[in-house]
Amino acid sequence: MSEQFDGLDRLVAGDKAAWDRFVIRFAPVIFAAVRRKLVPAGRGEDAEDVAQDVFVRLCARDFHVVRNYDAGRAKLTTWLSVIAHSVAIDHLRRQKARAQPIESVPERYLAVDPPKDPVKVDIPPGLLSPRQALVLEMLYPREMEVAEAAQVLGVEPQTVRSTHHKALVKLRAHFREPED
């Protein structure tokens, strides 16, 4: 793992120089992750503040978050990228909630339709594995390409195709539909 940082022990011990090196080294990773989420949402101008929020979280409570990092389990850049994306998504969610005060919404838009009886089909536990459900979720509601889904899962596209096929076989059998 060549992307590792050899000063984490000193950093969590409060070594200012180690923290400074950490910031210089990983600010581009964090900033890029934050921008990747914020720019498409039209909030690119918030990127610097949100990236700063990531650093605040990293050093909060005496580096509590950094202390939980385990170099044997994941690369530091991947871990920081996950945290940065998570903070950016939280930021967008908060902005969305604040965007329109409820007083400004015309009353007709707030009217709630009476709930319809939900059509819920019970699925036996274990009928679909989490991976099969995830593949179906990515290919249908998300409309992702097989190659994209394979990239997310970290597998070959053929694995996605076979997972998809097995999932449909199970669902057809469950709903008593004839199989192709």
Partner: peptide
Amino acid sequence: GDGAGLWARARPGW
């Protein structure tokens, strides 16, 4: 396709 319909039916229960 029918896959989309099947998953739409199964999704809430899953």
